[in-house]
């Protein structure tokens, strides 16, 4: 029983972080049909903001709020710098500019801060443990689960019950039609980037909280995870992204538990084989999402 509980906590906490990562990527993809390759750098920006504000003596929560705010601003900046100027012209151009923006941010961190890891402050509670029902687990895992639940709840309410959310869903289904009915395109897209930045900022706190340090390449792994999770779940579906995140975490941890030592080093090969099987069975991903309109 306690083993099962431990397993569930591990899956839910890792899956919660993965789901938030995937959601941040898919929210932009849903509307623009373009993967934002600078997404990982939003996580990096939040991490370095924590590092830079660490000497200020502010309470941790204030620093975290500033870091998340910076990630949101970086998200909006991605739209203004990399997407908006070339959005209407060519898909390839946007792909390249989003890569360029990603490289630019990474190299800025390399040049102006350091290629070596930099320390970020963590609150006391991140290093504490909780014991219940025969399970000892870091409090951080439970915080991650709680944060994921709150963020997903908030996000789902936003998408269903606010004008912005409904407009965004309309834009994701058929952008041209939505625009004809008076939905302002730029505002919707900027909002999507802002939400993407918010999710990246929150994920950053949880992800970097596992290490206690930030490096210029810190966003690569989350970007990859988010990408795979959305591919499994369905590139067009918000629910799919969340499902994909949890499923990927479930596969990773189950394989970590069950594979014999000799095979464990090939775990990623097993994970990706499973991903391929899922895609053979469901080429569109697990959840199909709205019928695909033309890219605008």
């Amino acid at each position: 029983m306690s083993f099962f509980l431990q397993f569930m906590i591990d899956v839910l906490s890792l899956g919660g972080a993965y789901a938030l990562m995937a959601l941040g990527l898919v929210i932009v993809y849903g509307i623009l049909r373009l993967v934002n390759f600078a997404y990982g750098e939003l996580i990096m920006v939040a991490g370095y903001t924590m590092y830079l504000t660490s000497g200020s003596g502010l309470p941790w929560l204030v620093m975290a709020a500033v870091a998340v705010l910076m990630a949101i601003m970086a998200g909006i900046a991605t739209d203004y710098i990399a997407f908006r100027p070339v959005r209407a012209k060519s898909v390839t151009a946007v792909l390249i500019t989003s890569f360029a923006f990603s490289t630019l941010l990474q190299n800025a961190a390399l040049l102006f801060i350091s290629p070596r890891p930099r320390n970020v402050p963590l609150p006391e509670i991140f290093s504490e443990t909780v014991q219940f029902a025969g399970v000892i687990t870091p409090a951080r895992n439970l915080i991650t689960i709680a944060t994921a639940v709150v963020m997903l709840g908030l996000f789902s309410w936003l998408m269903r019950h606010t004008v912005l959310g409904i407009a965004m869903r309309a834009a994701a289904t058929n952008f041209t039609m939505a625009r004809m009915l008076g939905v302002p395109a730029n505002l919707i897209i900027s909002s999507a980037f802002a939400i993407s930045g918010l999710l990246a900022g929150v994920v950053s706190m949880l992800w970097i909280g596992r290490v206690g340090a930030v490096v210029p390449g810190v966003g690569l792994e989350p970007l990859l995870i988010a990408f795979i999770a959305t591919v499994i779940g369905g590139m067009r579906s918000l629910q799919g992204a969340v499902l994909g995140g949890f499923l990927l975490a479930f596969m990773d941890i189950t394989l970590n538990f069950t594979l014999p030592q000799d095979l464990l080093k090939f775990r990623d090969a097993f994970t990706f084989s499973l991903v391929i099987l899922i895609l053979l069975w469901r080429p569109q991903g697990l959840i199909r999402g709205p019928a695909s309109g033309q890219r605008t």
Binding site: F3, Q6, D10, W207, R210, V211, E221, D252, Q261, L264
Partner: peptide
Amino acid sequence: LEDTYTNGDNDFSAQLSRLQA
């Protein structure tokens, strides 16, 4: 006990469970 880890995983929970077991 000998266990393995994959660089970049950022997750040590399965290894911990094996050690605890």
